[in-house]
Design a protein around this nucleic acid. Sequence first.
DNA 1: GAATAGCACATTTTT
DNA 2: TGTGCTATTC
Length: 707
Amino acid sequence: MLDELNPQQKEAVETTSGPLLVLAGAGTGKTKVLTYRIAHIISSNLARPDQILAVTFTNKAANEMQERVSKLINSSGITLGTFHAIAAKILRQHAELHNLTASFSIIDSDDQYKIIKEILLGMNIDVKAHPPKVISSILARWKDLGLTPEKISYGDVKSPTHGIAKSLYPDYQAKLIASNLVDFGDLTLYNIQIFIKYPDILEHYQNKYQHVLVDEYQDTNPVQYLWTRMLAGKHNNICCVGDDDQSIYSWRGAEIGNILRFEKDFANSKVIKLEQNYRSTTPILNVAGRLIKYNKYRHGKDLWTKGNEGSAVKVVYCWNDREEARFVTTEINSRSHSISPTPLKNIAILVRAGFQTRPFEEALISLSIPYKIIGGMKFYERMEIRDAIAYIRVSLNHNDSVALERIINTPKRAIGEATIATIKSYAVENNISMFDSIKKMIERSLFKPKIHSALSILTTKMEEWKHTYDTTNLYDGTKNILEESGYIGMLKDENSEESRARLENLREMMRAMNDFDRIEDFLEHASLVMDGDLSEKTENAVNLMTVHAAKGLEFDLVFLPGFEEGIFPHQKSLSTEGAKGLEEERRLAYVGITRAKKELYITYAESRRMYNEYINTTPSRFIDEILGDGVQKISSQKNYNQRAASYTKIEPKKEFKLKENFFPGFTVAHEIFGKGIVIRSDGKNIEVAFSQHGIKLVKEEYLIICD
DNA sequence: GAATAGCACATTTTT
DNA sequence: TGTGCTATTC
């Protein structure tokens, strides 16, 4: 088994005792080391599977690791999952120590905003001046640092909004606990609080986990760092794998210092560098290497690869953002029509920020190139899914006021703001949950008849639904709740394209539920694991996503658009984080570059539409930093004209002049050929790339501009 | 209490 | 550019 590893990988796999840091550059076989190490520990009888703890950040990474380990060895029994999932599991064992029950729910950011907003309104604070979103992220950062409400000092208050956050923090926590809820940050934080307060509990886990492995160590925040350290504290067999050059989550509380400090933190530790890259060509690695060398705050690694082939990295000038999109998409189009086409699923457009995707989407649509956006609207973020889950949550846990409020008037039950307000104030006065308050108010006939009957039906049903899953499977149970509540009826009555899609999503969710034994397991999955789309179709489509979302992925052909000052590096990163921000932006660019296996295009536009107007941009400083061997600078237009000559019948010599009305990049429509994009124009004859009919030369009078 | 219209504001990245 | 929120009206 170990023969498949290079010397450094082998050393990392075989160094099983004591603290080990594996600095694994992009594409150097990091997951291979982790999985082989686990297999090696088990097969050499160094530990049993249940004595191994392996932690990742994303569910995707956890799944991949699980899969690859099980191919090597019977791995059942190992604790393998994300920080959040494992911490949730541990917290459920000891929930009562935080005044929770084992069935607590995990809320997402949307629920957080709602709770925070409500507290703000109660405090008579302007929600516009202190947005719940901002406050929620302040609280999250504090939790990342391990700061509980009583630990917030005036030094942590960096703005008026921080001050509001400080004063609201205790109420926020109290509200969560009262509703039997926790947020993301609570999971690991509550864990370490328990570990500190109850050393015997910590010791139990320390004894159990003889080997601890952490993936993407550069992304750990202080609490996660402490959590891992505590759990590995006894046997001290901790293996952290990561790449300081790929630390791109500081805004989420990650501390690159954790990985840079490793040798100081763990006495007698060993550090192994993996530098042989199995992914990219030499030109791509050269570009990546030149760029990242500008960073000061790093361990320092040099990636290399066998063989010297590979086409040059292209740095492309475009005159505006639409032209940039046009260039990229026509480039993709020509690949898929070439003799040896690159499958679309091996092509990615990686943007710095979400708003950049729009011109690409438009251009891809007009050329009829299938694409998928990764990390857009997530399945569980859909309204109907959240509503359904809220119904289930409040049915199982009547105290979950957040879920109750979400669905109390969905479908419409004539319960408006005013009624909800009276229920809440009654709840506060009597120190009971909203649900109990409704029940009491019904008993005392405090509602008007219409509302009285609506609420009494709802609460009675909820008490029934609490036991729905005792006798039925998850599919039927959920269907029952959604039908009896009128939710499905509401969507059926609406009978629109949208409502039918929502019903289909609900069906998809219910089908997925049958993979679980207990409803509680499904709820946990929904709040922690259900990332991306449920339907993991590996359809052949171009991948369009942010660079952040692309971490860990690889593609034959990668486009990195928007290499302009202000976008990449992003202005906000520079203005709020200064030099550190710039280094993180550079790491982000590094991550983007190292996604490419065979070919890489870096593009920049001279003029870009932001908000509503065109602004002129400056090429990114990163472009200057990567120039050198294996880089070719081209201009989108020139490049296009060369190629256009080879596939169209137009005489290549003929000079086209731009006419004001039909600028290249404009979407136009033709009566017969349909929609297309203008390539160039001499005023009378317009060369158009039609999505259905290919490139044609048509007269101006037959075209209309669509945008 | 629900529906509508008008207005303000946005765009960094997310487990 | 579009969306999401608020105020206004029914």
